[in-house]
Design a protein around this nucleic acid. Sequence first.
DNA 1: ATTTATAATGAATAACATTCACATGTTCTG
DNA 2: CAGAACATGTGAATGTTATTCATTATAAAT
Lengths: 158, 158
Amino acid sequence: MIDDVSLKILEILQEKARIPNVEVARQMDMAPSAVLERIRKLERQGIIDGYEVRLNPDQFNRRLIAFVTVNVCEQKAKQPLGPYFAALREIQEVHYVSGKDCYLLKVRVADNGDLYRFLQEKIILMAGVIHTQTTQVLHTFKETAKLPLTNSTVEQRN
Amino acid sequence: MIDDVSLKILEILQEKARIPNVEVARQMDMAPSAVLERIRKLERQGIIDGYEVRLNPDQFNRRLIAFVTVNVCEQKAKQPLGPYFAALREIQEVHYVSGKDCYLLKVRVADNGDLYRFLQEKIILMAGVIHTQTTQVLHTFKETAKLPLTNSTVEQRN
DNA sequence: ATTTATAATGAATAACATTCACATGTTCTG
DNA sequence: CAGAACATGTGAATGTTATTCATTATAAAT
């Protein structure tokens, strides 16, 4: 479905998405119009979902990452909890995970005080939330949304 | 440090980063040259870290997300484990977290079989790895790298 | 061999990026 | 308070890029 030419285009864009189309074409050794058409097609097919700017969290007072597992009892909740969590500004990821009726939240806040207030005011008080367990990130070695595009020896793409 | 004008530019770019500069200028009601200069400055200051394309994981055989906590004993490791994990294709995030000498990995693979092989071959076999606990994601409600830029009532930016 | 579908090229033109001279406004300082 | 220093905006000019489209090439299907 995705051929090597498109794959190479995606690799280039994954490296730096806000470069001119002509530049992609140059790196590909192809006509700009051909590259443009392919990118459009990838967008239409939903292979490319969008383009994001990556901001430095330190500059926006979001130095601290925490992972919070939230045990819930949805029967006691007054509203669906997944969408509720998803709507919170401090939360970047909401996953419903295997285990004991559990959500896993990735949270970004300024500092410990902020984290405390966030949990108290926005999580623990919610009807249906039974208890939480918070894991603080001390150091991040890698944090990316990139997907591996080149196939390693064992893997195949479809 | 970051004024409202830049903030609005970042909001626009956070929504869709690969749009022409002129379009940003139109939405801002400013001259394109002024917008360009501001974006350049934000890049120079490291406030903008880069631009990424967001790919659809389903289309690349990465339907399954798992979070893996890895208990380690770095003394028994033959190499630093953080960088080792970070180098693995399947891993999107590597955090060293509070708790019992623990790494938290966010892993993206095709399916259960893939996850099993990944853990067996690339994690559990590593010297220094004591044991792991894997949590599978059943459903994802939200997954973004966006930072909240508008200030809510209580918060402030610096 | 011919049809059909898919995708590349290259030329033409519209749109955009980029630079720069100049204007405006703010802050700092003597 | 004047005016220097700085930051940031505008608008025009120019070079670059995006986009469209007619045409050609390639590959698979009948």
